[in-house]
């Protein structure tokens, strides 16, 4: 049992146990993965007969020249740059505050986490109401009259507000886990060495949190690249005023579901995937270079 060698019989048995997972995974993950790469090269494709008459790079060339796609990439990048640093810094700050208090700490955590368990679509509808130009709560509180959802200058900001608001809780919990993982001995040692609270923070807390911060940042970048639900609900099935909130994912949805241009949509999906692979690759490179064992497995 301990030193058993795999045999034909044991392999068959294992396959039987794995079969349910493998069948679903092959059908709905592995095959479509291959298929979407292939499809992005279909240039003449009939969906109804599933016939491919020609293949080539035309879909990518189309994207390269398509102003809508340029807009989508630009909007996505602006959105990512708007959301990610804000979310990471705010959630780190809140996690640090939560870590410093004893009383009511879990009560606050519960509240900050609420948006995560809330349907994105549902809460985006609430935000839609809050952003209402004449009767919305936000303008009433700020004393302004901004048309958050119909003015292309503000609609992306509105989207960023909703996404930051929703993303905080999840990242706070991750940061708290990271903070808990810092051995108290480091602080005791730093105190003995005469480090002030600020010095302890910069010399112990921040370096020890570096790996989890990278992890959270990468995760946040990837999920921001894929933003869709919030847009759909916030702008009632539109990509914002004058496509001001057209992101890459929304572009894919429009090409695919609204316009039925499957190969172009698949190609835009591949471009999105390449962005994600590059970011993941960079993170991987970072971890390799600093040879950091991420927590849970820290040696």
């Amino acid at each position: 049992m301990i030193n058993a060698k795999p045999t034909l019989k044991s392999t068959l048995k294992a396959l039987l146990y794995l079969a349910p997972l493998l069948i679903v995974t092959i059908t709905f993950t592995i095959w479509p993965l291959i298929s979407s790469f292939l499809m992005s090269f279909y240039t003449k494709y009939n969906y109804f007969t599933n016939q491919v008459k020609a293949m080539g790079g035309a879909n990518f060339a189309y994207l390269w020249q398509n102003p809508d796609f340029h807009l989508a990439v630009r909007n996505t990048l602006v959105f990512v740059i708007g959301v990610v640093p804000l979310t990471v810094i705010l959630s780190l700050g809140i996690a640090l505050l939560l870590n410093q208090i004893n009383w009511l700490s879990s009560f606050f955590r519960t509240i900050y986490f609420l948006p995560f368990v809330t349907s994105t679509v549902a809460i985006s509808l609430v935000w839609n109401w809050i952003f209402h130009q004449d009767n919305g709560l936000l303008n009433a509180l700020l004393g302004g009259s901004v048309d958050w959802l119909n003015d292309p200058h503000y609609s992306l900001t509105a989207l960023i507000i909703v996404c930051v608001w929703r993303g905080l809780g999840f990242n706070i919990v991750l940061f708290l886990a990271g903070l808990n993982n810092i051995d108290n001995h480091y602080y005791q040692a730093a105190k003995l060495d005469g480090a002030s609270a600020w010095q302890q923070f910069t010399n112990v807390t921040l370096p020890m949190l570096a790996p989890i911060t990278v992890l959270i940042t990468v995760n946040e970048i990837i999920s921001s690249f894929k933003v869709f639900d919030q847009i759909y609900a916030l702008f009632h099935g539109q990509a914002g005023p004058a496509n001001a909130d057209l992101t890459m994912m929304y572009y894919l949805y429009q090409k695919f579901y609204v316009e039925g241009q499957y190969p172009v949509a698949a190609a835009s999906g591949v471009v999105l995937f390449i962005f994600i692979v590059i970011i993941t690759g960079l993170a991987f490179w970072y971890f390799q270079r600093h040879s950091i064992k991420i927590w849970g497995r820290r040696s």
Partner: peptide
């Protein structure tokens, strides 16, 4: 299988719809 976790589910949307 672990490597598959990196694949964004949205990429699979179209072929899955076709399937």
């Amino acid at each position: 299988l672990i490597a598959l976790m990196m694949v964004p589910g949205e990429l699979l949307l179209i072929p899955n719809f076709v399937t």
